[in-house]
Design a binder for these strands. Structure first.
Lengths: 153, 153
DNA sequence: GCACCTCTGACCTTTTCTGACTTTATTGTA
DNA sequence: TACAATAAAGTCAGAAAAGGTCAGAGGTGC
């Protein structure tokens, strides 16, 4: 956690902790962090994506601005979300994709992802046969749910 | 016990004696031990594996890092206990007994037990066939590991 | 001598960051 | 009103700053 992008991200997320929108000027923010204005775009593109739950709007010209809006997370049922994000059947090669998707949705952090991956290698890498894909999906779901539950505790 | 890899391992384990995570830069560590950066990877690959109770994450690019996290496992007798309490094969009717035993040993709290039970009902009540019992055992172990990991976080 | 563990260096990939150039919007002015 | 000046933000190629990979050289013990 030592680079500029992370700090800027932190700054913005902090604001979004108390407000649903931030509106600011790219130029000002860049000045604040003593960086090139295009750095701000980099942060927005890599950290404040729709996948992660943000909407970014902007306007050029005089009175221009950048606005970030928090997308209301359908914060309903964690179980629902996991169910909808993970298909009924899961081939081994797809497990990694699913983990990344869950990370993008910030349902898992990076350490959780590594933990899941390792658990799979250790215990469930040799699943085969008829219903392996179904079973794999269930296993992933179960483990994700445990992690998710614990993350909220 | 005299080669570089051992010294680097020692150094890192020492830190992990007092912290559950180390985060450092490969370049810096290599400089410290006057070796090639790739030597660090060798140490990580041979000494800090999941099997041995570690999770390793890393990030490239500016502000990159390597992070090692201790999985509660070989320290104390967590895995020993888990391994001895959970047999290789687990019949469905025995799952509940195992959960209770784990609770008695305070490896799970009462909430964890309910969580496990529900997950089993939801996803794995219909396991059958040859290897169901083995799978059931692995699953319980995996879940216990997650819970143990998360409880320490 | 063979098998296995260490270790390095050359080359690769990913992530961050900047600067030059482009596009768009507003404002002031003839 | 048309047009120039000004004030934003956007784009993108490429430099810089990490870490990753892998073949093969060098040890060590049997």
């Amino acid at each position: 956690m030592g680079n500029l992008a992370d700090f800027i991200e932190q700054y913005l997320r902090n604001i979004l902790l108390t407000q649903r929108k931030v509106e600011l000027q790219r130029r000002e923010l860049a000045k604040m962090f003593r960086c090139a204005p295009s750095q701000i775009n980099y942060v927005l593109e890599t950290r404040f994506t729709f996948e992660k739950g943000y909407l970014v709007e902007s306007k050029r010209g005089g009175g221009g601005f950048i606005r970030i809006t928090l997308v209301p997370q359908d914060n309903g049922d964690f179980v629902q979300t996991v169910e909808s994000l993970i298909p009924e059947k899961l081939d081994a090669e797809v497990v990694e994709d699913v983990l990344e998707k869950l990370a993008a949705w910030e349902l898992l952090d990076s350490t959780d992802v590594v933990l899941c991956r390792e658990l799979f290698n250790k215990y469930f890498s040799d699943l085969h046969g008829e219903s392996a894909a179904i079973l794999r999906a269930k296993l992933v779901k179960a483990i994700i749910l445990v992690i998710g539950f614990k993350n909220k505790e």
